[in-house]
Simulated assay, not measured.
Amino acid sequence: MLLEQTTSHTVKELPPLKSTDSADAKVTWTLVLLVLLLIATMLLSMGIGAVPIGVSEIGSLILHSLGWTSATEVTEAKAMVFWVIRLPRVVLAVLVGAGLGIAGAALQGLFRNPVADAGLIGVTSGASLFAILIMMLNAQYWSMINEYGGAYVLSLGAFVGAALTTFLVYQLSKLAGDGSAAMILLIGIAINALVGSITGLMTYLANEQQLRSMTFWSLGSLGGANWTSVIAIAPFVLASTVGLPMLGKSLNLLVLGESQAKALGVNIIGLRRMVIVLATLGVGASVAVAGSIGFVGLVVPHIIRNIIGPDHRNLLIGSALGGALVLAIADTISRTIVAPAELPIGIVTALLGSPFFMYILWKQKTKRI
């Protein structure tokens, strides 16, 4: 109902963003190219590793599982590696990347700030705090939860932490002011500082084994990917990737300013709440299973915006595809570049993202001169 109110109240808005046929064609071809690159990257990632699997073998395995072929010449070992290790990891990378990419684009549009991301509203810091809290308390204090939750206690705790921190930021922004985007950012910065200090204190008190687990989790990894983790986050990421593009028209009008958008029929409070909730769903679930992965939600929307323009109806979809593509590439690099060891994926995204982000800022500055 709230989603309908947010989008359906824009009855007397300005005409949609004008675009030429060539611009529309550019957007379409860009999205098609992103899909094709994503498929190619997934095939490459599923084939590379200690046990190489060819594209024809991947096709044979998939066709056989669908019942379209009666037999396959792929060895049982390769089939096991493909179904149990490679495929769930690639699918998880796509889901996490899509959730981070589309959330970053939506939050940048909501706050009208090109450097906004989920970290500004407490999603990442809250998830990290609760994950470290569970690591510190250990299973002996969580015997009942550990008995029923098993290996998923950490993921559940991280997701709850992300949701609670974001909810706290939003409620405090309404108590301290009018709940505007600027107030949410200010409260978010304060809460992030508070949560960061608590996390630092807990890190200081941790023993060597706990500190090692905390460090590895905070750098991000898809090493523990399996079908259970894929199924666990899929509903949250799909809700985010389906729901946020429906708010694209309202986010376009918000570019004019909150007062102008409100005069044109946009439900500002409802829009703000829906964007934050949907972004938290995607990012919180992603951080819960993969740890803290930076720069995807920050850099990918910039790249897509420079290619297809600022129309959020296209930008959000493109950011989801771009985020999935970037994280699939980063994960392939992280597990192969130092094989048989594995490099945390957060290091790879930072090495790839930070120079590119600095280049974008430099380019924008030169345009203004």
Score class of each variant (00 low, 15 high):
T30V: 11
I333T: 11
G284S: 08
A193K: 11
S180E: 10
G177C: 03
A23R: 11
Y148M: 02
T7V: 14
A320S: 09
G257T: 02
L316F: 10
G294Q: 04
T332E: 06
L87S: 01
R86W: 00
E4I: 14
L37V: 01
L63F: 14
G179M: 07
A93M: 10
L343Y: 06
Q5Y: 12
V51W: 13
E342A: 04
I58W: 03
L34D: 12
V81Y: 11
N113T: 03
A328P: 07
P114N: 02
R273A: 13
G67I: 01
L172E: 04
N314H: 15
V296K: 08
A158H: 01
G318I: 07
A158Y: 09
A225M: 00
S229E: 09
R89C: 07
R272P: 07
S125P: 05
V74P: 01
G243F: 03
L351A: 14
S45A: 14
E342P: 01
S292K: 10
L34E: 00
A139L: 11
I269P: 00
L271V: 00
P88Y: 03
V160P: 09
N306I: 04
G97I: 06
N314K: 05
T10D: 13
A279D: 03
I317L: 12
G270E: 06
G49W: 11
A341L: 11
T75P: 02
A103T: 12
Q108A: 08
A23I: 05
S143C: 08
I304Q: 08
K26L: 13
V289C: 08
T124V: 07
P114C: 02
Y359S: 01
K365H: 13
S213D: 15
L61Q: 00
T280Y: 07
L194K: 04
S319W: 02
F82H: 06
F82L: 08
S22T: 14
T199G: 09
W227I: 01
L351Q: 04
G353V: 01
T10V: 15
I85D: 13
L129Y: 07
V169E: 05
L219N: 10
F159K: 03
I58E: 15
V96P: 02
V289N: 05
G248V: 08
L31H: 00
L44H: 10
Q140H: 15
T332K: 01
A71R: 14
Y170A: 04
S45V: 02
